[in-house]
Amino acid sequence: MKALVVRKEGDEKPVAAVEEITEDMLPEGDVTVAVEYSTVNYKDGLCIGPGGGLVRKYPHVPGIDFAGTVEASEDARYAPGDKVVLTGWRVGEVHWGGYAQKARVKADWLVPLPGALSTRQAMAVGTAGFTAMLAVMALEDHGLTPENGPVLVTGAAGGVGSVAVAILSAKGYEVAGVTGRPETADYLKSLGATQIVAREDINETVKRPLEAETWAGCIDAVGGPMLARVLGQIKYGGSVAAVGLAGGAGLPATVIPFLLRGVNLLGIDSVMRPYEDRVRAWAEIAQSLPMDKLETMVQPATMADLPKLGSDILKGQVKGRVVVDVNA
């Protein structure tokens, strides 16, 4: 079977190439899945290329998410023929992942695929869309409704941002998308954004800890100075769901928004998320994400495309969602 294998010799840079591997090379696990589709995420770019401290041992098969059909199972919860999806659990990082025609994983890591979704649609959603849904759920669990006002999405043209814009719009929210790429404005509007905010307009910290109350909530994929700035623009009692750090891990902020406006900063982790949350999120995705809009985000790819795509996503040059057909 085919797999994208990353090899590293000594201090040399990792090299990724499509190779033929055998099933006995797969890691231990309860369930063997015939993989149909995977995706490309920022972590995948790291694992294909520099490693980023995520890959512990080479040779390695990246791919932090996949969807496919159970081929063999030692766990009663899954039987051959079941459609499943996997995101997180360090798969594709410390455990071989989805960039192969078969994967062997622990049953606890899998989620039954909702009947309304195909495996291809599941990977058009992927880890990025799953994370976006978790963020929307967290904001709504903290009281966000469309009547509260506009919701800001930073890094809006990226994978998480694109799906977040589409979900929020479909739920009736007024959505403002932040992007540093003006050419993506029409794309974001097609997903449902009603306002485009230029990155440079919101990317710098200001001396004032509070600005005008502008946003009822925010899904932030950027972090750094932009997140600090957004916190000072959130309406009283509003929340920010933090999902990424494309703009840096630091947070040059004050506690004033938390103390004077009751703002909530909600951390969103998709890797170790409990099973019940995963089932709820995938059910919400099947119900709330417009599949026609999802399809407009998709860039099809094969395993042969992955080395370049891994490099491109680290440079911020990938728009929307990449769906990798591992059997093409």
Rank of each mutant, 00 (worst) to 15 (best):
T69D: 01
G267F: 06
V35L: 08
I64C: 06
M137K: 15
A253W: 05
G129T: 07
V243Q: 14
G143R: 02
S38F: 01
V206K: 05
Q299N: 07
C218G: 13
V136T: 11
Y37L: 03
G172A: 10
P257D: 12
M226T: 12
V55P: 02
G232P: 13
I234A: 11
L26A: 11
D141R: 15
V151C: 13
K235I: 11
G248L: 04
G29M: 01
I219R: 06
Y187M: 09
D11C: 02
F258K: 08
E28C: 09
K171M: 14
G172Y: 04
A246W: 07
G224I: 02
H142C: 12
V111Q: 09
L4Y: 01
A107I: 13
M25T: 11
K102D: 09
E19T: 00
A34Q: 14
I196C: 09
G63I: 00
G244R: 06
K43Y: 08
T145F: 04
V271P: 00
K57A: 05
L26Q: 09
R77K: 11
Y99D: 03
K106L: 11
A135P: 02
V35R: 14
P209N: 10
V324P: 00
V31P: 07
D292H: 13
A76K: 12
G88E: 14
G63S: 03
V263I: 11
K43F: 11
P274L: 12
V84L: 08
V240Y: 14
T179I: 06
P80T: 07
G129S: 05
V55W: 04
T22S: 14
A283C: 02
W89F: 15
P112D: 06
T194N: 04
G88H: 06
G172W: 05
G248N: 13
S73E: 04
L227N: 12
I21K: 02
T154C: 08
L265T: 07
E9F: 01
V160S: 07
G143Q: 08
A249S: 14
S38Q: 03
K293C: 08
S311A: 15
M1D: 14
G262H: 08
T194R: 14
A328E: 03
G29C: 01
G129Y: 05
V18I: 05
W109N: 13
R208L: 05
V18P: 15
